[in-house]
Design a protein around this nucleic acid. Structure first.
Lengths: 172, 172
DNA sequence: ATTCTTGCAAAGCCTTTGCAACTGC
DNA sequence: GCAGTTGCAAAGGCTTTGCAAGAAT
């Protein structure tokens, strides 16, 4: 069947070729649980919907959008399924302090974020030094490393331009 | 009066010499507000208490501990004061996903954290490369940088030892 | 048929807020 | 005495959960 390459991707970073679709990967996860869990319509809709886009979203946004597109989703089930998807390694949870957002984990390269505090944009970036840095620090402290969160806060180029322009005008 | 060096410090990283005590710095902040704010008994107690220790704490812990030591504190005021302390640059807020903790910002060096997900320990580390790395990424994206969060998750040396030992025993 | 999932509404957790009494300046 | 602070209890977000009805295998 060949490899599956995740969704239409408007983002800058490279997708990673993976041998299973997100749906397949999720089914496998469900089947592998101590007591097999079931793959339901609502879960299938969510996986398809989430992996058809490539953006950062929070639970409430997802609920609104999916309802807007005619899907039948309930708040409780969305929260339950998002937790499973994180657990299954399909999604990653990013804590922004104000909001908690999700992004694709499966089929997408490791990366970190610049978060604009004005317009809420998330710019993904890749820096090969970070992993080496983490490894080095962890070995120094005998720390067994399982993951990391690295978010740089500030203003994206557009918002910063707006701000400095406004400031100049204020001075006139 | 000479310089003030912040509290008894059980931590590894160097304190930074600062010319004002946390209390003085906070008063200055309060006075500098658009409409001058007041320095009250409860706020004074909190600042003294917080800067007499050097640990990571959340709001509820602080309330319990201070009550335990006979201070009169109310939940609402603690939350209000913590916000002011963050705003004043005395404390930094760290979002751990599960918990939000605070640590000294004023009088203490910039650093990042290893967070043990088992015992909740926070190990502070200093890496001189991180700032350069942030600057370089930001300039690449025209991003105006105001702060960052970098938390490495995993198991501290002790918890990891416990885990691997247990595993070995399980195999017997 | 059995066992898991769903959906609702209720509860939980952490944090903020409205308001009357109080207090710092 | 004025303006800001406190404390209570209530409300606010977001997320989880108990339970009866429904769906997947």
């Amino acid at each position: 069947m060949g490899n599956y390459c995740v969704g239409s991707n408007v983002n800058v970073l490279p997708s990673v070729e993976v041998s299973q679709s997100p749906e397949e990967k999720f089914r496998e996860y469900l089947a592998s649980r101590p007591r097999a869990q079931r793959y339901t319509t609502q879960q299938r809709d969510m996986v398809k919907y989430i992996f058809s886009k490539h953006n950062h979203f929070d639970a409430e946004e997802l609920i609104d959008e999916m309802k807007g597109e005619g899907f039948q989703v309930s708040r409780a089930t969305v929260y339950r399924t998002l937790n499973k998807l994180v657990d299954a390694g399909l999604l990653r949870r990013i804590n922004l302090g104000e909001r908690t957002v999700f992004e694709h984990d499966y089929g997408y390269s490791q990366h970190d974020h610049l978060h604009c505090e004005k317009c809420d944009a998330m710019i993904e970036f890749l820096d090969p030094q970070i992993e080496a840095l983490i490894r080095s620090v962890c070995s120094q402290y005998g720390f067994y490393f399982t993951g990391h969160t690295f978010v740089v806060r500030g203003l994206c180029a557009a918002c910063n331009r707006a701000r400095t322009t406004k400031r100049r005008l204020d001075l006139v």
